[in-house]
Design a protein around this nucleic acid. Structure first.
Lengths: 337, 337
DNA sequence: GTGAAAGCGCTAACAG
DNA sequence: CTGTTAGCGCTTTCAC
């Protein structure tokens, strides 16, 4: 068994409570005692048992994050920023992944709560109705991430996705494109908002959005390349040729580009393509990909900040919505090269 | 406060011990009692407090994994496989990332142990000496991952990296290349073993490895593209021109390709390039990248299996080394197109 | 088959 | 400033 608090206390001939106080930085301990405790703690490399501490105190200084899939670099990057932000504020992170399975997500929620996390951050992969039910049962502060559910009344940190849709579409318009299609993401606010931004930009430019130029697809995070390729093939089969496509994410954009090239057309000369997410490798693709950057790491930092404020009761606005502004990163897939 | 074991017991007019036994599947409880307990548990959606359970039992049915960085898809994929394997065997996973900082890794080790994990899996980013010191202090079963440290006497699961080096080099040799360079990874067994495999393949083919054709670089996981590009530029400045390069990983291979193309040369006609890791997007690169696949998910599964065997005391070979065979995935960067 | 008693290692609340 | 007393919610042990 590892060394315990009471061992240290016994060694020093003082009470366990005093040692505990020193460890937690309580002020009501004499300077000399404090010194001796720390000295001994370091000497034996004592580590407090977090299970016991959490059980006794009802607090764990730990928050949980559940993401749909860590293979999506977005979430890995978000987790990284979040972790740094939490650390800076004296909190730890437990990371869990739902592997895109709603059932697993529910289990992870239960597990993290059973582990006594002080707060939960959730990028849900559940359909809205189910997510609402899950959320309703969560008794600790809970921040939604990436995928918004306004009806939940929970705080949110994510991208301003409708701005992302607008930005991408306006970029294409500014290049003189007029017949702009969209491969949309289905099922979550990210997809719906980007679609809305796309429509808004078109309308503002005096172009009537055409329904045959929008396809909605799910699972774009996992299989976007295949799905994007197939969707693009459908677009290419339309009687009137498009001159640009805004894709829900970079993976689907990469697939779309493949389909365009396979059809013997050029990117961007014949069809310009914009993705979203700004993948690390976007610049090394067959055609370097114009994309929308989401400042993912910053989102994590924001989430940390907001969560800790909530925990401290210092955030008055209990359904605070933080939406970071997306940025366009132009590359060859829209600008020639 | 959440509902407790004793609440259920009180509701049913039985003792907490009996409820606890039912929950843990102990046999010495009457069938009828068992039914009633489960019914009530489901009705109130009771979740056992894991802190209390862990504290009381000294077991948590949880293992911890520490990786250098979740942004390396290798580790995200490994974690996924591991998680699935553990789940199947009734264990949970707590995932931690050291963000490539040895100090953080040490803290994560301490934290996970303080959380009472039953076992620890570690892909260390510490230099061997430091890692040995850290490992020596770990009192629970501990499996090394990806980066081997034979001197530690700990079990290991990873790639057969020297086979990977051989495979890549033999592939290049089989294509008639003779002047084959290597951008090697520094500091860990992965890099050293791949280098050794490279040398072995050359020697076996009757080619004397030349020191100016090997450069060792660190941080290739994070900044491989930049570093690979620079390393390739150095190679190109040598008096005698290479005709192939085996790169430590895909990221550095991508950088190397960029440098080759920037010099006005062709891949693979002038210089063939092989990477390692088989990135998801390898096929969509400027030049689709020939790579070595590491069966990453399977490695995770193996790690789960081995860990649970260790925990059950069923693995006799306490420093069991599992090295999965790598596979070559040929693409245009070596084969033309 | 069932349950009473005794903790697991720590902290909260209060007393000195 | 320091320590005592009582738990946190669960499991273990061992009687019945």
């Amino acid at each position: 068994m590892a060394i315990r608090l009471k061992d240290i206390a016994a060694d020093l001939g003082i009470s366990a409570v005093t040692v505990s106080k020193v460890l937690r930085g309580k002020p009501d301990v004499g300077e000399e005692t404090r010194q001796r405790v720390w000295e001994r703690v370091r000497a034996v490399n004592y580590q407090p048992n977090l299970l016991a501490r959490g059980l006794a105190s009802g607090k764990s200084q730990t928050v949980g994050l559940i993401v749909p899939d860590l293979l999506h670099t977005f979430f890995a990057e978000f987790a990284k920023g979040l972790k740094a932000g939490l650390r800076k504020r004296g909190y730890q992170l437990i990371l869990a992944s739902a592997e895109e399975e709603p059932q697993l997500e529910r289990e992870e929620i239960d597990t993290l709560l059973a582990r006594g996390v002080d707060a939960l951050l959730l990028a849900t992969c559940q359909p809205e109705e189910d997510a609402l039910a899950s959320l309703a049962a969560i008794q600790v502060p809970c921040v939604l991430v990436d995928r918004a559910i306004p009806a939940s009344g929970r705080p949110f940190v994510g991208t301003d996705d409708s701005a992302a849709g607008r930005l991408a579409t306006e970029h294409l318009l500014s290049l003189g494109r007029r017949r702009i299609a969209h491969i949309a993401g289905e099922g979550f606010s990210t997809g719906l908002d980007r679609l809305q931004g796309y429509r808004h930009a078109l309308t503002t430019a005096g172009i009537e959005p055409r329904s045959e130029w929008v396809v909605c697809r799910s699972r774009l995070e996992e299989a976007g390349d295949r799905i994007g390729e197939a969707a693009m093939a459908e677009f290419l089969a339309l009687p009137e040729r498009l001159d640009a496509v805004f894709c829900y994410n970079d993976l689907s954009a990469i697939g779309a580009i493949r389909a365009v090239l396979a059809a013997g057309l050029r990117v961007p000369e014949d069809i310009a393509i914009v993705g979203c997410g700004n993948l690390r490798l976007a610049d090394y693709m067959r055609v370097p990909l114009t994309s929308i950057d989401q400042s993912t790491g910053e989102q994590g930092e924001w989430a940390a900040k907001l969560t800790v404020l909530l925990l401290a009761g210092k955030e008055k606005n209990l359904d605070r919505q933080v939406r970071l502004a997306p940025k366009l990163v132009p590359r060859s897939s829209t600008q020639g090269s």
